[in-house]
Write a protein that binds this DNA or RNA. Sequence first.
RNA 1: GUCCCGUUCGUCUAGCCCGGCCUAGGACUCCAGAUUUUCAUUCUGGCAACACGGGUUCGAAUCCCGUACGGGAUACCA
Length: 515
Amino acid sequence: MIHPTPRLRFAPSPTGPLHLGGARTAMYNWAAARALGGKFLLRIEDTDQARSSDASLQIILTGLKWLGIDWDEGPEKGGDFGPYFQMQRLPLYRAAADRLLASGHAYPCYCTPEEIDAGRKAMEEQKAGFAGYNRRCRNLTAAERSAFEAQGRKPNLRFKMPEARVLQVHDLVRGDVEVNTKELDDWVMLRPDGVPLYNFACVVDDIGMAITHVVRGEEHFLNGIKQRLLFEALGAECPQYAHIPLILNKEGKKLSKRDADTNMLDYRDKGFPPEAVFNYIALLGWGFSGDRDVFTRDEMVAVFQIGNIGKAGARFDEEKLRWMCGEYVRRWTPAQCLERARPWLSRVVPEAAFSSHAAWLRNVVGCYQERITILSEFTDKIGWLFAELPTLDEAAQKNLAKEPASKDWLRGYAEVLEKGNLPPSWPADRTAADAVVALPSKKDAAAPTCAFATPAQIEQECRAFTERIGVKFGNFVHPVRAALTGTDKGPGLFDVIFLLGREACVRRLRAAAAR
RNA sequence: GUCCCGUUCGUCUAGCCCGGCCUAGGACUCCAGAUUUUCAUUCUGGCAACACGGGUUCGAAUCCCGUACGGGAUACCA
């Protein structure tokens, strides 16, 4: 075979949501396919009929799309190697099973679950090391078979494993590994109802779909051995396997529901930027380079190699994920950020405002961009802008009570602002102000020409006022911020005043002074 | 029990395959400082690791063996 087109797949079973580990596996397959110039396909392993659901399938597909992992063949796409749902491929498995039966690689097993269990227990008592199916049906005579049939027993089909063959296999991640088949069972391929089990369906489909490389979790390593033997029995070439370690929690144990959100879409709903999640997950067991952590999908594809995936399990660290999110959020322009944040802004901002106050909202968002890491934080952060009066938190109350004279300052400053040239307050139209003044204001930025006072001008007037009344600027600022925003954190005070506009500022200062 | 894999700062990792450039690099976190009207951002500096024991070698994080610890597997789930 001369360099066939590389074909890789992600083969989820729709029995639950797409979790971090699955997403990472999908991503590595995707990245390898793109890096090799091959195809990436999705195959749905829905043979566990009791647990599979369409809802899960939709969640998985949506999660992949959200992360920017697109597929060339599979659900919603079709392709020349379909069908891509295993339950639609039953005749293919039946045909392969018949071939195996005919070639003596498989045999019918009439054992009941209870009998199998009893056999296993007996082997355990002999403490032979490995305890599995006792292979009772492996060498049944024709007469014995018909006797079982006569009892009405329906046989499973089992694969006949070599008794004690040493296999030298090469794994793209693990390297050369030696495995003795005596550690392996005669495993069940097909149920009486014709529904295949994982290992069997997987191989039939990997052959049928011309898969060349398989990246999957290390829990499949031994399955890989069974599968190699099946490829051999079917006279097909085995794909290159890469078995990667699982994602661990903070304690180094397998990641579970308690440790992190199990559903990729939970991250979406909380406003984690998908690029950041993608970037972070990629880093769990793989490194872009010695000195860079932040990279795009394209940059990853340009350098990705399956062999560079680490052999050791990586722990999921939400703090670094958060940092990564902030890293992406800060790189957006305020306009881009506004677009992204819209679903969360909508919880406090009336829908109409997105067109009527686009420039203002862009400034609001701009002011918080470097203060958040995930988009849902916007919801709580910007509420004060829309309230009649802000709710004072503990720090704000303290800052208002600190200086006895501060109420006079606030009253005085209210007067200054009232007479000043501030933009109007929400919900009045203030496009003339926001369209020309881009927040957050930068120290060394050229002063824009504006019909209203700019933050820089507001600051100038403020400093002049504090001088007039003989108050240290640094002291003055705190009660003002408290009165205006209800807290001690937030954007620059003069951006706040600009954003709030005249009426709101005056109202808030006077209300705080009157407390 | 048996088999397989792994082990570099608290965490993610670079280096390991092809021993010397490693007084082990980067990032997150943390601490200190600078900037500053708060917070945040940004910048500067700092703390902090080759699991342990043998061996090979002039020389080992890098090669070999063992021990310990961790993970995975051992289904009519995938």
